[in-house]
Simulated scan of single mutants.
Amino acid sequence: MKSTVYEGNKTFTVIEREMEAPARGEVRIKVAYVGVCGTDVHIYHGMMDKRVKTPLTIGHEMSGVVDAVGEGVSGFHIGEKVVVRPLDHRGQKPSDKGISHICEDLKFIGIDSPGAMQQYWNVPAFTLHKLGATTDLKLAALIEPLSVACHDVRMAELKAGETAVVLGGGPIGMLVAMVARQKGANVIISEVNETRIGMAREWGFTAVNPAKIDLVEFVKGETGNRLADVVFEVSGVQAAVDVMTEVAGIRGRIVMVAIHGQPKSVSLFKFFWKELKLIGARVYEPEDYEEAIALVEGGALPLERMITAVRPLHAIQQVFEDIDRQPDGMKVLMDCQV
């Protein structure tokens, strides 16, 4: 089988190695497609070298088919289509309060252990979610990031008729906007990349560039001065942190989707003055995966437009170099069987 390996120093190699039988409690998956996400790009840039133990096969946004079932596994059969929820919570402690997706010793499969950018992949059976027999495996590779969006919107307690402002129109921001609109919200996307603004508008969203217009005044005009009921901070930049408290209306909810690795300045006065709420949202829970699967299988969202390109596994080095040169795209999928 072919497997890709991140070697460090912006270098991937493709190697041949023997397939392994799944261990007890594991399932071997014939991987169909793997999406390249922002975290993978961070790994490529060396930003996670202290965490990622090279050489390592990365990747976690995937779809595939059960190829073999290890001892002690029930409920899964060869040929079934599946996706992996790449969280290993086996280090969970009583102090984690039973909330496994954010437990203290959580391991992220594809970062802390081998991932999906290979032809066959052995994973713990408890990470699997079944798909329908007719599910498009290209679209299914979007279920992991779509689950992030489902979790974010669920944590926001977003209601139909509310106004949601999404700060950042990259892949996750666009998926958050899609899920929020599906819930009946009025969605405004704030994004500085003109290509992505154009995409959002083509997909029927109201999208504006905060570098060119006053975002707060725009949202006031769209809401009759009520401002946003929910703000999703997806960009990870200080400018968005500055505006999130301004664009949120009275008793607005701000959902922190982005990962801010360093402390940021926040207008705490606005939380007092408008009785705002700040909500953290990290990865997903099983119910978010099931919602994302239902959205994919129901054809409710224009997800096919999210796929920028499909490239063969052996082109992995070129794929990451191309993303560096042209970061405007949404989602590149790796075809792991080519």
Score class of each variant (00 low, 15 high):
F12I: 04
F12E: 03
F12H: 02
F12A: 04
F12L: 06
T13A: 08
T13M: 00
V14G: 07
V14R: 13
V14C: 12
V14A: 08
V14L: 13
V14F: 07
I15W: 03
E16Y: 05
R17P: 00
E18N: 15
E18G: 15
E18D: 15
M19Y: 06
M19D: 13
M19L: 09
M19G: 09
M19P: 11
A21E: 04
A21Y: 13
P22V: 07
P22Y: 13
P22W: 10
A23N: 04
A23L: 02
R24C: 02
R24H: 05
G25S: 11
E26W: 07
E26D: 12
V27S: 06
V27I: 13
R28K: 12
R28T: 10
R28H: 12
R28M: 10
I29Y: 06
K30E: 14
K30C: 02
K30I: 06
V31L: 02
A32C: 08
A32K: 03
A32L: 02
A32P: 02
A32E: 11
Y33H: 12
Y33L: 06
Y33Q: 13
Y33M: 09
V34L: 00
V34E: 01
V34K: 02
V34P: 00
V34S: 01
G35M: 09
G35N: 08
G35D: 12
G35V: 11
V36N: 04
C37E: 14
C37W: 07
C37N: 13
G38R: 13
G38M: 14
T39S: 12
T39D: 04
T39M: 05
D40P: 03
D40Q: 04
D40T: 07
D40V: 04
V41M: 15
V41F: 14
